[in-house]
């Protein structure tokens, strides 16, 4: 009995071990130089993985993404600046390799589009509100004499009801 409970306690304790400890072998950290890796990651975050398209090479584990990250690492190590490295990639893969598209003539619409839509939306909204306000104003003014009479009558009968 005692032995059984000891075993089960041991088993539960094993289950409670923090998972990362059990899986510690999985992720091999390659950061011999954390400062360098940080810079590599920063640049890799700006570059699109061309075969996965909606990921940066920092996020992707595709072969090409790993190669490109290695290339970035080599270039950082040899003292190239972020700008130089991104220019190098753009020279070879085109603007598409930038995860953030650059602002230039062919991308003006892309950058300005959302603001333009917002602006149009606000203008339309303002106009509609104005129109609605005008309409209600008009209606208020436009009470006919008969309506006024009717209104007065209603109010009067209400008053009498309240009195009694």
């Amino acid at each position: 009995m005692r032995l059984m409970s000891l075993v089960s306690v041991g088993f539960v304790a094993l289950l409670l071990l923090p998972a990362p400890l059990l899986l510690a072998k999985e992720a091999t950290p390659m950061a011999e130089d954390p400062v360098l890796e940080e810079m590599v990651d920063e640049i890799a975050d700006e570059l699109r993985c061309l075969v996965c398209q909606n990921q940066t090479i920092a996020d992707s584990h595709a072969d090409l993404a790993v190669d490109l990250k290695n290339q970035v690492r080599d270039m950082v190590r040899s003292g190239k600046s972020q700008e130089e490295i991104i220019d190098y990639m753009v020279e070879r893969y085109g603007d598409f390799v930038r995860y953030r598209p650059p602002v230039k003539t062919s991308t003006y619409l892309l950058w300005a589009g959302p603001f333009l839509l917002l602006f149009i939306g606000i203008v339309v909204l303002m106009q509609n509100l104005k129109k609605r306000r005008l309409r209600t104003d008009e209606q208020e003014v436009a009470l006919t004499p008969e309506e006024r009479k009717h209104l007065a009558q209603l109010l009067k009968s209400e008053e009498e009801k309240n009195k009694s």
């Binding site: 061309l50 075969v51 090409l64 190669d67 290339q71 070879r92 893969y93």
Partner: peptide, 13 residues
């Protein structure tokens, strides 16, 4: 072997 020239030529597929 390591795809370096490929990168130089902008090879992605």
């Amino acid at each position: 072997k390591n795809g370096k020239v490929g990168i130089d030529y902008g090879v992605y597929g």
